[in-house]
Design a protein around this nucleic acid. Structure first.
Lengths: 189, 189
DNA sequence: GCGATTTGCCTAAAACTATTAGGCAAATCC
DNA sequence: GGATTTGCCTAATAGTTTTAGGCAAATCGC
């Protein structure tokens, strides 16, 4: 019988695509096997478990998103960097809703520490360098930015903003501008 | 055989408790049946489907959370109301992580329109009455507040803030204060 | 090029979840 | 008390997860 040429990498990549198509929590070993035209049990040579697949997709998405954000931030500072960061984040979620959801999967501490999540934190801190915030304010600000961006994207994705006539695009700019002003006001004298 | 006295209400309530104990996505018709000591099929007299159960828990959680927020807001205005709103939101998520997750379930538009989600939107707007914001700024602000609070709670729950030594409590106050200042600055002259 | 070994995908099987159909006894209504 | 409704049951089907063991294809050593 001809072999399908599966690898852990390919499976995780395909899992990420599947997540974008049908939603992250619909990603199943069975569906993945179907997609490759192989039997379910075959995937267990490459994946330890269903949870292992999900974690793999999460790590992949974190990497990919970190790469995008890094690109977006290159050569920018201050308000410009803030806007670019926000845009990269939001665009990724819109292009790849399943991967975005995966990136939000709760990882156990060791896995998280070895993930691209660390880069995300570093980059958020890098943005704040343009705003002269001393600790612990800088940490507070990191948490606030993470919260706003994640919260906004998450609410937008779940259809929370579809009732009103106000353009979400406009709200997004308003929020980014507001945050910029807020951070400038908080600058350590 | 003695009857267990199941009703849709009791099942949803128990489902909410189960969600808090084992996580919202571990809530299953089977687990619920086990908890009541009845056979799985018996629950189908009260619930249309697994999805129906999940939706029921979500609606229940939205109600409960809206009640709490309403209580917290009673008699308060401005910064005081903002802080109370934030606290009610966060406390609920900590006390009832499963229900909180349920409240974030994506509902189809008709269900959402008939849910307590509407009250949530109204109450958020009520808070902003203390800040003199004209439309569309008010809508932008509603979205921002929703984003920050949901985002913060969601990141905190998923362990995102456990790396640094900075007290999450302090960050929370800092953020609430910052938002208050931001909204005051945005007030329409 | 060929034998030995590794590796990849397979079949088989057990366990759990979701869902539907139909039955019998308990509760409820005159 | 008899008729009807209702609640929980058994039975059966289908899908997903996971483990165990097998056979053939790929790969390695010579």
């Amino acid at each position: 019988m001809a072999r399908a040429g599966l690898t852990t990498e390919r499976l995780i990549r395909a899992g990420a695509e599947l997540a974008d198509e049908v939603g992250f929590d619909q990603v199943t070993i069975s569906a993945l096997a179907r997609r490759f035209g192989v039997k379910v049990a075959s995937l267990y040579s490459h994946l330890k478990s269903s949870q292992d697949l999900r974690t793999g997709i999460a790590l992949f998405a974190l990497e990919e998103l970190a790469d995008r954000v890094a690109d977006a931030l290159a050569g920018r500072a201050g308000r410009d960097a803030l806007a670019a960061f926000a845009a990269a984040y939001r665009d990724y979620a819109r292009e790849h809703p399943g991967r975005y959801a995966a990136a939000r999967l709760r990882l156990d501490p060791e896995t998280a520490a070895a993930s691209a999540g660390v880069r995300h934190a570093q980059m958020t801190r890098a943005i704040l360098r343009g705003y002269d915030l001393a600790e612990p304010d800088q940490t507070h600000a990191v948490r606030m930015l993470g919260s706003v961006f994640h919260g906004y994207v998450s609410l937008e994705m779940s259809g929370g903003f579809s009732h009103t006539a106000v353009d979400p695009e406009e709200s997004w700019s308003w929020i980014v501008d507001s945050l910029d002003a807020l951070l400038r006001n908080r600058a350590t004298p």
